[in-house]
Structure formats: structure tokens, C-alpha cells
Write a protein that binds this DNA or RNA. Sequence first.
DNA 1: AGTGATTGCGTAAGCGGTTAACCAGAGTAA
DNA 2: TTACTCTGGTTAACCGCTTACGCAATCACT
Lengths: 353, 353
Amino acid sequence: MADRSTIYEVAKRSGVSTATVSRVMADGKGFSATTRDRVLAIAAELSWVPSGQARGLASRRSGIVGLLFPDLGRSGEAEEESPLYVDQVIRGAERSATSVGDAVLIAATRSESGRELAFSIAGKVDGLVVMARSLPDDDIAAISRCVPVVMLANTPSSGGLDFVGADNRGGARQITTHLITQHGHTSLAFLGGPPESPDSQDRFAGFRDALRAAGLTVPRRPAATGGFTEAGGQQAVTAMLGAGRLPGAIVCGNDEMAIGALAALRAARVRVPASVAVTGFDDIAASRHMRPALSTVHQPMRELGERSVRVLLERIAEPGRPPGSVVLPTQVVIRGSCGCRGQAAAAANGSRP
Amino acid sequence: MADRSTIYEVAKRSGVSTATVSRVMADGKGFSATTRDRVLAIAAELSWVPSGQARGLASRRSGIVGLLFPDLGRSGEAEEESPLYVDQVIRGAERSATSVGDAVLIAATRSESGRELAFSIAGKVDGLVVMARSLPDDDIAAISRCVPVVMLANTPSSGGLDFVGADNRGGARQITTHLITQHGHTSLAFLGGPPESPDSQDRFAGFRDALRAAGLTVPRRPAATGGFTEAGGQQAVTAMLGAGRLPGAIVCGNDEMAIGALAALRAARVRVPASVAVTGFDDIAASRHMRPALSTVHQPMRELGERSVRVLLERIAEPGRPPGSVVLPTQVVIRGSCGCRGQAAAAANGSRP
DNA sequence: AGTGATTGCGTAAGCGGTTAACCAGAGTAA
DNA sequence: TTACTCTGGTTAACCGCTTACGCAATCACT
């Protein structure tokens, strides 16, 4: 239970110095096979594992990277959740950290704690990846002064930091274009997420790109906005319904909103995609299972996580190099809700790192 | 970028001793308000955050708890995933750790690394919650000798460890009973997950309980088993279809299998629930969105995570106390796929901690 | 005024590892 | 024989905090 033994005990019992024990545990060189086996045996016998704290202190590397993501509750007791895709990002981050023997520390920043928590984390890790909307810009700036930081899906206003993101704008443009050219829609509405979300902004920009390219009227703002949640989508569409003006196609800021939109439409007995087409963004697990299945833009959430910790590790290894920016491609995936029948082909949408 | 400053610098510049700086940072007592402000100001100016390593070493508490979960890949390149509910567990764990100022370190044990990784984690944390199937029993035993461990959803064969789980058996019994008494089914099949999964075993036991109570024939083994995945459910049902013997109701080991079952059934143009009823287990997000929506058993995944780290923290605080076991209630949630129309009431299923 | 408690702080000994510097002895080439 | 290189170690100085202990000054009573 209690990790009482130390390297000194192990050293004494195996008749070597602590330096040797240390080297054996580090898988290094400079000792014989017999010595190694002996040390390992004693360590097992004592069920000793080297203290990560002490190791970290001495070698000034904790072997831990941190991942900060937003838990967007209305700070009240309402249980609004972070978008589902952070789960995938977490998995991705875990994966690339583990692959190099590091571990990942996760923390959701809730409005109250935020700053404090972030600093406590910062002291424990070798570096931090910070997801969009988890921290105000000045806090990020402060943190990045004590520990390497890479921004995930959040263009750093401060600049000077590494960035990893997905091609939101291109994806939104493509799926909107699909709606226009393949299905002949001319009346399209964009359902935006939180206005301060850079993802939402970029997607809206892509939406506008497509309309502009098609010579349609380009709106200045989303037809409606709401949280990136089912409830948000549902309310927005219910409002549209109430106002009596439904577009031919609704391009949603993310899948969860699209799912909410679908629910509102079903409740109003509006047929999808016959009367109105709906598309999402993200390609979360549930979108495949809707009826109609959701046409959406696949965002490489797992890769986003993997890539961001990879970039972070590179920066830790080489602190001097200039900050870079990698944009991962998104991919539109066509299912039923846009009007295509059945599963159709997917179009790729590349962009260079 | 580089965290160069130390407590010594902060102390010198603020004209106090390191002890005072330490106390200020720990939010303790024994200094005046002016001193505190001065120290804080200097710390900010130097953008210094106390090293978690050094802190941990000195106070022998890292303020980090670990969460080990299985990443059940076939160790080949096939990307089978951990069940979706681990995401919720992670969120729950994060939440209760953060609420007391701790952080959570996550790591998926893949077959190859497993042991090694677990030990490396063990050295970095104050305690570990280990999810079912992430580690062989003897590794768990070894680890629990150096660090407090609580088992999650995994009855410890070794005993002597704290345990947190959900009432799988009761939930399975209840939903099966619902199928029998409310819908008159007499021919029911259980689609099991991996035979070594304790969850799957418990759920099958509950299924048998219900059949036995109803005076029906009680099978010795699940009608079929597979991974806890969509593919698993799909294959199993496809096989049943091929064999030409479809039961009146299929009770699936988890939602993902149920979703796969639904897909297989749809492909074969078998109507659900008209020709065959299907139920799941877990209540993952997607199950609400299926058509028909999945009747299932809600498992308190978030609470499982929260509770297990709470128990862990208690044990860390009080290492001597006898190991305990908490079983969280599950709840059957009735939607369309069992034959009830629309959303119906949910039945509670309590059990005592 | 005398006594004890409290406040506010400094001193310094660890915490459990890593690692640079050093060294004995064996091998080996000239 | 001499000098030089490996091998397989040892010694001890840190790494950057926490905290037990000590101490002076102030405060609260009697």
C-alpha cells in the first residue's frame, strides 16, 4: 500500500550504489546483466517504483503533458457539457503521449476556477495543450510564459504560440457548395454556435464563401446562434418555425445542433430532407445513427489530439524553434439529411500543414 | 517559456524567506497581507509557478490521481476502441478530482505496454483507479502494493481493494422482466460481450434471474457473444438470421452491440420492435437517436467516475480503513425498441452502497 | 509589571531521485 | 613495459520545494 521503500534501500540490499539502481531503472548503460537482474529482483521484492516526483525534480522533466479543455457550464448548476468531440481529442492526446512514454493530465476549466487550476496544472507538466475557449487570452499568455503551450483549435490572438486546428472553413464551404450545386438550394441558413467560438466563426466564413461563389446573397450574420448543443439547435429551429420562415437548407455549426434541429423539425412534422435539408459538422458518433443519417463534415478529432501533443513534445524538445501552425484537413461525409439517398461518396478536402 | 525562476529568487526579491513564499503559495497562515501581496506580485512578475515535482517530493503528495482504462485493440493495427462509456467515466473522474484541487492522469493500457506503463504511472500519482479489463489481476496486485488502488467495475479477485461499480445484474433483470411481463415475450436471447468482461457476466446473470423468475427456460450461456461493439452485435445477429432462428426479443450486453443488432435487422428487413424487440445497456448518447430509439438500462457512467476518485481520495486520506464497495443503482429507460410506443416512463432500480 | 499565547517570520534539514566527475581493474596495442 | 581505452561501477552535489523548530515582538490578561 504505502510506497515506503526508496532507492537507497534498493541500493543497499542489492549491494550497489543508488547511481547504479538509477541507471538500471532508466534502462541505461554501464552495468552488467547480473547487476541488472539483481536490482530488478530486489525492486520487485520491495515492490518499489521510483518516485516520479523525485525523478522529475532531478531530471527536470515530469514526463507529463497537460490537456486543458473547456467545460462550458453556465457556471450555474445547469449541466451543459463540453462538446462531445473533446472526448476524441482526449483519446488522441493520450495515445500520442503514451506512445513516447509520457502521460497526459486532463483538466476542464470551469468558469469559477479557471486561472487557478490552470496554474496548478502548469506546475505539474512539461507542456500544455490548450483547447479553444478553455481560458481567456491573457491567462494563456501568462501560462505560456512558464511552460510550453500549444493552442488547439484556437487561433492565438497573442501569436507566438504553436497552433493545431482543422480546416473548418474549407469543410463548411464544401458542404454548403454540395447543398447548392447538387441539390439546387438557393435559400440556406446557417445555425451558428457560440459567437465567440472560433470554430463557429470559421464555419460561418466557409458558409459565406460558398454562397458568394454561387452568386447568392451572403448574410452578415448567422440566421441564428445558440450553444453548441442539441437544445441550442432545437430552440433555434423552433424559433424559425415560429417565425414561419424556413429555409430550404439548414447548415448547422455542429452535429449536436443539427440533431436538435432534426428533433425540432420532426416535432413540427417537417420532412427532412424532403422539405428542408440539414447538415452538421464534426461527425460525432450519433450522427451516423440518426434517421435520416446526418450529412456532415468529418473533423479529425482524434488526430487533432494526437497531433497537438506531438507538436507540444517537439517544442519541449526544441524550445527555440519558431512557432508553427498545422491545419488538418476535414472531409465532407454525405449521408441522408442533405437529400442524397443512402450513403454516397465522400469528397476530400485537403490542406497543407 | 522556460520556467527558470525558483522560489529562491522570488524569496530574495520580495525580501522574505522561502518558507514565507511557500506559505503564501500554499494559501496558508503565518504572514501579513502586505507580505502576501508583495510575494504574489513578484511571483507574477517573474511568471513563476511552484514546481509540482518539488512540491510533491517535499510534501509527498503529488495532487494527481491516475485513471487506467483499457484500450481494447486487437493489438494489431485494427482500431477497435474502448467502450464509449469510458469517456463519461473520465469526465466524472476529472470532475471530482478538480473539485478538490487534484488533477487526473489518464492512460489507456494497450496489450503491449500494459504493465510497464502502469508502473510508470504509479510512480507519478497519489492513487490509481483501475477500470475493469485494463490490467491482469496480478499486475493489479503488484501495483496496489505501491500505491492505493480502487477498482472500477471490476470485482477484484484478489480482494482487499476498494470497489466501485454499478448494479448491472439488477438492471439487466429489470429490463428483461419488462420484456417478459409488459410485452409477453417468452423467447429471449442474450447477446453477450466479451466472456471475460465482468459487466457482461453480471448482465447475463440478471437476464437469467428474470427468466428464472418468470418460469422460462434459463440458458447456460449467452445465445451469442462478441466484442462490446457495433460489429460484434451485427455479426451475432447476422449469424442468428443465417441460422434462421430469431428470438422474439434480443437483450444486448451493451448499447453498441444493440446498435449493431439493429443495423443487421434493418439490413434483413426485420421490423423492430414489431417482429423482434431489442434492448441495450449503458444508455450511451447515440441510443436516444436511433429509430426506433433504444430501450436500455442507464448506467451512471459519470457518477462511476466521480465516485471512484472520491473513494480513492478517502483511502489516500485514511489508508488504514477496511476496503469498501459501492454499487451505484442503474435505471431502465424505456424507449421504442422494446415495443413500447414513444417515450414511456422509466423504472428505478435502487441498491445500497 | 509579569506571564502566557499569538503573530509573523527565518533557518535548515530533508524529500528521493539523477548525473557529472572520478576511479579501479582488465584488456590491448605499441 | 608503458600508455591508453573500456567496463562497471561509486561519490556526492544538486533539483526546488515543504515544514519542524526556533525566536522576537506584540497582545491579552491578571
